[in-house]
Amino acid sequence: MNRNTSKSIALGARLRNARKANKISQRALAEKIGVAHSLLSRNESGQRVPTRTEVIRILAPLELPDREREEILEMTEDPSGSPLAVIELPERRAQIAALVEIEQMAKEVVSWSPLIIPGLLQVSSYTRTIMEAVPVPHEEIATRVAVRMGRRDILTRRDPVRFTALIGEGVLHQTIGGPAVMAEQFDHLLMMSAHENVELRIVPTATGWHPGLCGSFQLIKCDGTSFVHLENPVSAVFVQESEAVAGFERSVPELLEVAMSPQESFELIAKEVRRTTGVA
């Protein structure tokens, strides 16, 4: 497994979460297992990939459910560092952990979402409606909704991520969750579009061919590294190979070329609010 990949970042996140669940600091754990504090720090950030033997040593003093311990150890068994890392259920939690970690490191995110509101702009009622409709285990829905709502923090924190949201016009005509949910969702879009770091653009349905017709994607730009996250309800893939990522990067200007301006997009969403609520 290579360092600074989605897999190494996911493994680091699981190690950090396990340590924090045991209420022990990095320094204290390092002293307990006899390693340098800086080593644990690099492991947890994904900058260094520990071996299976090292992970066993790290987890030894921690109290963890057997299933969680096994899941973490399984993450050390793929040394390939494949640039296309398909992660299916029941490994979904590791994939979500990787996405959260990468978004936290991001400087800029570009999302093309032709079918639904981008996750970083969803309200909880909209997210819950979707998760109740797709094959998400019922006992995981509340946690998944909370995680998605927590992800939005990158847009409003002190050093916010620059976010460009490209949304298909057809999304505005859907009634996911009913009129009340859609009205709440549209109000949130208008509110977020007022943030200086958020650019919201609607891509009209009546356009010619453009690369966005090949499917949705999320481009995540970090210092020195970029990722593309592709997802459906039951699986996901991180694209990390530089040439493949560059292909998605080239599609962004073409999408912006056919998109409405921020002001036109705002006015269209406001019109949908009036239509949905019946308030002129």
Rank of each mutant, 00 (worst) to 15 (best):
R19S: 03
V147P: 00
T225W: 02
K271D: 14
G278L: 06
P61C: 11
G212I: 14
G208V: 04
E108I: 01
Y126V: 02
V109Q: 05
I24Q: 06
C222S: 09
V181N: 00
R57M: 07
P61L: 12
F266C: 05
L219D: 05
S113T: 10
M1A: 10
E231R: 11
R93I: 03
Q26V: 10
G12P: 03
S265L: 05
P137M: 08
L268Y: 03
R19Q: 07
P79Q: 11
F186W: 02
R42L: 14
P118T: 04
R93Q: 12
H188A: 13
V100R: 06
V203M: 14
A10P: 09
S125E: 13
R67V: 15
D223S: 08
S82F: 02
M75H: 03
A13Y: 01
E71T: 12
I202W: 05
I58K: 02
P90L: 06
E199Q: 12
V171E: 07
Q263R: 14
T51G: 08
D223A: 10
S80F: 10
I117P: 00
M182C: 09
G247H: 09
L213I: 09
R274G: 10
N197A: 06
E169D: 04
S261Y: 07
E101W: 00
A97W: 00
M1R: 09
L11W: 01
L230P: 02
L29V: 04
A60S: 09
E70H: 12
I117L: 12
Q26N: 06
P204M: 09
L120Q: 02
V279A: 14
I9R: 06
Y126M: 04
A246L: 09
M191W: 03
V198D: 11
H173A: 11
T129A: 15
I202N: 07
V147H: 00
L172G: 03
R92D: 04
V136T: 15
E264R: 13
H195M: 15
R67I: 13
S8Y: 02
Q95F: 14
S261G: 08
L11F: 07
P50D: 01
P83D: 12
P61N: 10
L99S: 05
T53R: 11
E231C: 12
K32W: 04
E77S: 12
L40H: 04
S82C: 06
T225P: 01
P179G: 06
L172Q: 02
R19D: 02
Q240K: 06
G46Y: 00
L120E: 02
N232R: 07
L190H: 06
A10I: 01
S80A: 14
L213N: 04
A28H: 14
A206W: 04
S265H: 10
L99A: 11
H37S: 07
V49I: 13
P65V: 05
T205V: 10
G34E: 13
G178S: 11
N17S: 13
E241Y: 12
V273P: 02
G46I: 03
E139D: 14
F186E: 00
F163C: 07
R201M: 11
I117F: 09
E267A: 07
E243M: 13
I9F: 00
H195K: 14
W112Q: 03
D66T: 11
L219G: 04
F163A: 06
T205H: 07
F217L: 10
I56T: 08
V161T: 15
I96R: 14
Q26S: 08
V35C: 15
L40Q: 03
L39V: 15
K20C: 04
E184F: 01
E184V: 01
A13Q: 11
Q26G: 15
A270V: 01
V234S: 14
V279Y: 05
S6H: 10
